[in-house]
């Protein structure tokens, strides 16, 4: 792409019947940039992710992605009849060897589960396999659709560190869709708040990594206000 951007969205509009879910939306994501997309339920964030993943093509406007795209969903969506390592190489054409899968599984510290059936994994383990499957394709854009939403709090914290490390190593552009404000502030270079199909506000986070929850306390109050949550009277 001439612009050098990984994602370039221009005037994207999506309607379901009479309801406009995305409204003339513009979005740029630079190569290697980590963007978090926040929004209430029904704000259109999952729809935007589906458009970028190529799962929804019935839209107006343009959405261009430069290079390969991978998605990790809220549920790991592993094929239960394939062993873990075969699930990891699912997206590779032509099907590549086990060593590639083992290498990807080693990065998420699951190499010893390569021959297990998906049903034997815990929720966090399955989600790590899903991440390995997304990353083994060496995507230019990694789409994360609330990938930690179904995990317990401790596992979620560990996953944050893991995602950050994998992102720094592979350097894909990342679009993280979430409704966890703290998660967005810990991980993202840039936080977008989506409201009624438009980007309502945008915050660029400059704090070096790894971050603490307290690092962007000022932004946190603003983002929460954007989302319609007021913290005491002070906000």
């Amino acid at each position: 792409m001439a612009s050098g951007l990984t994602v370039e969205v221009r005037g994207l509009t999506k309607k379901f019947g009479d309801r406009t879910v995305l409204h003339e939306l513009d979005l740029d994501i630079a190569p290697g940039e980590f963007v978090a997309l926040l929004g209430r339920s029904g704000s259109g964030k999952s729809t935007l992710l589906k458009v970028l993943a190529g799962l929804d093509t019935d839209v107006n406007g343009s959405a261009t992605v430069d290079g390969k795209v991978s998605v990790a969903f809220q549920q790991p969506r592993l094929l239960p009849w394939r062993r873990v390592w075969r699930n990891v190489v699912l997206g590779l054409h032509p099907v590549v060897g086990r060593d590639v899968a083992i290498k990807a599984l080693t990065e998420v510290r699951l190499a010893d589960h390569a021959d297990a059936w998906p049903r034997t994994l815990s929720g966090g383990e399955a989600q790590r396999v899903s991440l390995a499957r997304a990353l083994v394709r060496e995507p230019n854009l990694l789409l994360l659709d609330e990938p930690f939403g179904a995990l317990d709090a401790l596992t979620r914290l560990a996953m944050h560190r893991l995602v950050e490390a994998l992102w720094q190593q592979h350097e894909p552009a990342v679009l993280l869709v979430t409704h966890d404000v703290d998660e967005a502030l810990l991980l993202a270079d840039r936080v977008l708040v989506l409201d009624e199909g438009r980007i309502a506000s945008e915050y660029v986070l400059g704090h070096p990594r790894p971050r603490e929850l307290s690092d962007h306390i000022d932004v946190r109050a603003k983002v929460l206000a954007d989302l319609g949550v007021t913290e005491r009277a002070s906000a």
């Binding site: 993943a53 190529g54 799962l55 795209v69 991978s70 998605v71 969903f73 549920q75 969506r77 094929l79 699912l90 997206g91 054409h93 499957r133 394709r137």
Partner: peptide, 11 residues
């Protein structure tokens, strides 16, 4: 349908 969607996203 989630598996269909996931594999569609994988190409």
């Amino acid at each position: 349908s989630h598996l269909i969607e996931a594999t569609t996203a994988l190409g």
